[in-house]
């Protein structure tokens, strides 16, 4: 019989061995992207008017390609100043984490539609610059839904390219949104524990009542170093219904550097 420390060492060794096996059969990539986003937002808790403007946007995506599936983990950040047509402004910041899993046969870069699922987590915070009270509002969404992509590698003038089109629709999840008047969601109280506040303020996210969908298309040029350089167009739409609806539409153009890790 093994004692406890030895058992832990064997379990650790076993996990390490399994990880090595998995790494040996996979490829890992890191995509770093940065660009501009034309963003429009309407938060009825602030105003019936749409606020529009350009934001800086950056994303880092780790992609793990395995023989039968590809997993992508994306961290995103965007920040900028939006204005409405009468000149009032607000600062809007978004932080997001999304993971997508695509299922496929053999080579992930095969020319065929690949299906999978995605989990989207987005936090948006808005500060209105013209209002003295209740000038801060936010929303948070965590949801899952189907995703699909089509990858098409091709050659042009002896150079290797890949065109990838991807889309995802969120179906089910939960959201936390600022309340009818203030920044805190309805039901939040200073006297409650954070967990109580979470359950008090949480609302379901249901496709049909709420919408959150994304679409992107990117063209990557393979560099001789096994890395690639690309350009991506990305479109994100969001409509969170509730006591004060929050609508958002972002169109981004990003430069993408893909680094092959192994």
């Amino acid at each position: 019989m093994l004692n406890k420390p030895n058992r832990l060492i064997w379990i650790g060794f076993f996990c390490f061995f399994i990880s090595l096996q998995a790494i040996a059969q996979s490829t890992g990539q890191l995509k770093l992207s940065t660009g501009v986003q034309k963003f429009a937002n309407r938060d009825l808790g602030f105003s019936p008017l749409t606020y529009e403007g350009y934001r800086s946007i950056s994303q880092a995506t780790f992609s793990l390609d395995r023989p039968h599936k590809t997993e992508c983990y994306q961290l995103g950040f965007a920040y900028g100043l939006l204005q409405n047509r009468i000149g009032n402004s607000m600062n809007v910041m978004s932080v997001g984490f999304m993971n997508q899993t695509f299922y496929h046969k053999n080579n992930p870069a095969e020319k065929r539609l690949q299906w999978g699922w995605s989990n989207q987590n987005v936090f948006n915070i808005r500060r209105h610059n013209g209002f003295s009270n209740y000038s801060l509002r936010y929303d948070y969404l965590s949801s899952i839904g189907p995703t699909a992509r089509y990858m098409m590698p091709f050659q042009w003038k002896r150079q290797e390219f890949e065109w990838t089109t991807m889309t995802q629709v969120q179906v089910l999840g939960f959201q936390l949104k600022s309340g009818y008047i203030g920044a805190d969601p309805e039901g939040f109280s200073k006297d409650n524990s954070p967990l109580d506040n979470f359950f008090q303020g949480m609302e379901p996210f249901l496709l049909g009542r709420d919408w959150h969908l994304g679409f992107s298309s990117s063209l990557d040029w393979d560099l001789p170093s096994d890395n690639s350089l690309g350009i991506r167009y990305q479109l994100d739409m969001s409509s969170l219904r509730g006591r004060q609806n929050v609508l958002g539409l972002g169109q981004s153009l990003l430069l993408v550097l893909t680094v092959k890790l192994w």
């Binding site: 209105h128 003295s132 009270n133």
Partner: peptide
């Protein structure tokens, strides 16, 4: 009562 702010489509607040 703490005041909340709003804006009208013609630019008035």
């Amino acid at each position: 009562g703490t005041p909340v702010f709003g804006e009208l489509s013609n630019g008035w607040t």
